[in-house]
Design a protein around this nucleic acid. Structure first.
Length: 783
DNA sequence: CAGTGAGCGAGCTTCCGCTTGACTT
């Protein structure tokens, strides 16, 4: 049987290619890598030239055996994974694992999914590029060395289950450095002076013209003096310049720019964007969504030209091929674009429609003519020699703006621009209505959003399109970074106004610097970052990835051996790991001593404990056991004061005795509670554990006692494991640690043993909550 | 979401890049 087997990376791609190639070809997918370093072990034999130990992960076993059988039946096997370092390695692993033979194995590549591109690829097969494979192995092994040697140091020195790596640790560093930059930022104020003139407009009607003073007075006194000087001044138009300006469209989407624009325009998280894009891709509506290329296929260019011509006219069309400038880009795919550019909209969920619309517009706009504008700059001079300017912009040809305009992160810094200016002549004398001087403050740099952090990582060549979203998740999951809102600060700004020869002043209060959904480092993030930065500055260097990438490139080009690179790296890295582990310090990493507790003289300190940041009174060496408390919310380890720390030890408070047992209040994992013997009652939100009274606490205890009593509806002597209970969400059946819903219409009191067993059988044996699910439930509660 | 309220004593955790499922809640 004469048959060809083609193996690609993605099943959606396999489907499309299958249609192009016809019946002689069977097209299967490898679903990415089929083999990797062992999951749990270090898996690198350092002494033996860094020999890697690969394994086929359990979830890939079935797939691999299927590929093996099909390969055995085929006369020729075509390895068609992506044309980049990872793709080459995938082909090589396939070759090795499937035990393919050189005589009937061919390696082909294409970077657009069009019939011509694929048929052309079939015509030009090559061999597996072992240099490229070696470059991938060097990358993989270096990442494993860094991750698996650094992480255990953190477990020992900071907290278990933490992690470090070439990519994530630098991502955290970016967020930490930004935060420190903001802390160090000192806001300065100056006065923005605006003069409002009254001039005749187009149709003779009087209109306002606002012009800004070119310089900015630094102080209130200076601003006042300036307004004073304007009292008798005259104002004349000294100059008027009109010049044409062109704006060009942005290139089509890559993964990173799609994530940024979807965040700005649609409010999507990077994860959301990728999930929705994946759906569009699997439905065949867009090209591959993990790409670093801005390239469009010639077919796409031609379609854009036709669509733009038909819908808007020839003058709107302007074919462009953009070039990718991103550091380390591998360009194995096209840019992200609609597969059928003629379809301006698609069916699907609301989110899919919106994301598709964004992709369609961006693609079309990238092939449209420049926008043409006319920019007018008018200079106004006062008789005292002070210069004012006013600018106006008029669109003379909208071009690509008709379809799409890119958004920017810091909208507040953009000056408001006026559109069309009234007719103005040089030497025209203007009369002013008023002049205001408004105090303005410089703003600290904005914190990163998920998407702007991705942009920064991409700029530094760190991470790949397939990993941007996971990186953002990882640094949040590890508790290094929180996504949170930051409240603005209250500011008092002075406003001075000269009107009708009088200067008046007032003070406005304004909120400035508020930020939404920004990445903020946690205490753990700060401590881990400072620690790694101190002992492993090379790895934490923003340019570490760029440096090693350069070496990987040399391997790919056959100029260097991959083992040499690793030997050199390990030779300096591993000793610093050993040295760091050997360091014995008096204090824990990140520990801060606040002082001594006034009452006892014991040392009060803050540090990262087994369960996160905590406050400790006394030390382990003291006779008495130390006391512990959780860090209060919203206060950082770096900023907490002695008073704030001691406040946390005022709990548990014992309020008195009730029925011979003490009544106390405390804050637990699930918030404040009242305790009475073995009974715990959660405190409602409006109650404060510091101020709740004894009587209020007893009320809560009695209420809880009643709920407990009602909780038990029924139990059965035949099976003590089974009980019908009343929970927060109504009655349910509890059986051997699992809970089962009682179907609607069933009265719980009337259920008998057989009825219960039937329900349990119907809902099936439930697994106990996995640790992973527990962890997410916990973090959900925290936020 | 069906309860709970600790404090590093044992075992485990961890990297980065390819790619999609099959599970509930």
């Amino acid at each position: 049987m004469q048959k060809n087997l083609v193996i690609v990376e993605s099943p959606a791609k396999a489907k499309t290619i299958g249609k192009f190639l016809g019946d002689d070809y069977e097209v299967l997918s490898s679903y990415g890598h089929i083999r990797d370093l062992k999951k749990k072990e270090f898996s690198i034999d350092v002494k033996n030239d860094f020999a890697p130990k690969y394994e086929i992960p359990a979830e890939k076993k079935e797939l691999v055996s299927k590929l093996k059988t099909e390969a055995g039946k085929a006369s020729t096997v075509w390895l068609a994974s992506d044309e980049d370092r990872e793709g080459e390695a995938i082909s090589w692993h396939l070759y090795e694992v499937l035990k393919l033979k050189p005589e009937n194995t061919k390696r082909i590549v294409f970077h657009e999914i069009t019939k011509t591109a694929i048929l052309n690829a079939i015509q030009h097969p090559r061999k597996i590029d072992t240099n490229l494979v070696d470059a991938q192995q060097a990358r993989r092994i270096l990442d494993r060395i860094v991750g698996f040697e650094l992480s255990p140091i953190l477990w020992r020195k900071v907290k278990p289950a933490l992690s470090a790596g070439r990519v994530q640790s630098v991502a955290v560093r970016l967020v930490v450095d930004k935060e420190r930059e903001i802390q160090a930022f000192k806001s300065e104020s100056s006065y923005r002076v605006l003069a409002t003139f009254i001039v005749p407009g187009e149709n003779g009607k009087l209109v306002e013209l606002k012009a800004e003073l070119a310089r900015r007075p630094k102080t209130k006194a200076e601003a006042e003096a300036f307004l004073e000087s304007c009292k008798g001044a005259t104002f004349t138009i000294a100059d008027k310049v009109v010049k044409p300006v062109k704006r060009s469209p942005a290139p089509p989407f890559t993964t990173s720019t799609l994530q940024q624009e979807a965040a700005r325009k649609l409010g999507f998280t990077v994860n959301r964007t990728m999930m929705v894009a994946q759906n569009l891709y699997e439905s065949g509506l867009i090209t591959y969504m993990r790409t670093d290329s801005v390239d469009l296929s010639s077919l796409a260019l031609a379609t854009c030209k036709r669509v733009i011509g038909e819908q808007m006219g020839e003058q709107y069309s302007h074919s462009r091929q953009f070039t990718t400038k991103t550091l380390g880009a591998q360009e194995a795919h096209e840019a992200i674009r609609p597969t059928n550019i003629g379809d301006a909209s698609v069916s699907g969920s609301a989110q899919e429609k919106r994301l598709y619309d964004l992709i369609w517009k961006r693609t079309i706009a990238s092939q449209m003519a420049d926008a043409e504008l006319e920019k007018t700059t008018v200079t106004i001079m006062s008789s005292h020699g002070d210069k004012f300017t006013v600018t106006g912009e008029v669109i003379t040809f909208d071009g690509f703006i008709r379809v799409y305009r890119e958004s920017y992160d810091d909208d507040n810094t953009q000056e408001e621009e006026s559109g069309l200016l009234p007719p103005l002549e040089k030497n025209q004398i203007l009369s002013h209505q008023n002049i205001t001087a408004t105090e303005r403050f410089t703003q600290h740099p904005p914190r990163y959003t998920e998407a702007s952090l991705v942009r920064k990582l991409e700029e530094l060549g760190i991470g790949r399109p397939s990993t941007y979203a996971p990186i953002i998740s990882t640094i949040q999951q590890r508790g290094y970074v929180d996504k949170d809102n930051k409240e603005g600060e209250k500011r008092e700004a002075t406003v001075l106004k000269l009107e009708k020869g009088e200067i008046t002043g007032k003070v406005n209060t304004e909120m400035v610097g508020a930020e939404k959904s920004k990445l903020i480092p946690t205490d753990i993030g700060l401590v881990v970052n400072d620690f790694l930065n101190q002992y492993f500055p090379d790895i934490l260097d923003y340019h570490f990835t760029a440096h090693v990438e350069k070496e990987f490139d040399e391997v790919a080009e056959g100029q260097k051996k991959w083992t040499e690179i690793l030997k050199k790296f390990y030779g300096t890295f591993h000793p610093s790991v050993e040295a760091t582990l050997a360091i014995k310090t008096e204090h824990k990493v990140g520990e801060r001593i606040l002082g001594n507790e006034p009452a006892t003289g014991k040392v009060v300190s803050v540090k990262i404990g087994r369960f996160g940041p905590m406050i400790q009174v006394g030390s382990a060496n003291d006779e008495e056991k130390p006391r512990f408390a959780q860090m209060p919310k919203g206060i950082s380890m770096e900023a907490i004061t002695m008073e704030e720390a001691l406040e946390m030890f005022k709990l548990p408070r014992t309020l008195g005795e009730y029925e011979d047992k003490p009544v106390s209040v405390n804050i637990g994992r699930f918030g404040p509670y009242v305790r009475h013997g073995s009974l715990y009652a959660s405190m409602p939100k409006e109650k404060d554990p510091m101020t709740i009274t004894f009587d209020e606490s007893v009320e809560l205890i009695l209420a809880k006692r009643e709920a407990e009593a009602k909780r038990h509806i029924k139990s059965f002597d035949e099976d003590p494991d089974l009980a019908i209970l009343n929970g927060r969400f109504g009655p349910y059946i509890s059986y051997k640690g699992s809970n089962y819903k009682i179907p609607k219409g069933t009265v719980p009191e009337e259920l008998d043993l057989a009825g219960c067993q039937k329900i349990i059988a119907e809902q099936g044996e439930k697994k106990k909550a996995s640790p992973r699910r527990k962890a997410t439930a916990k973090s959900a509660k925290k936020s």
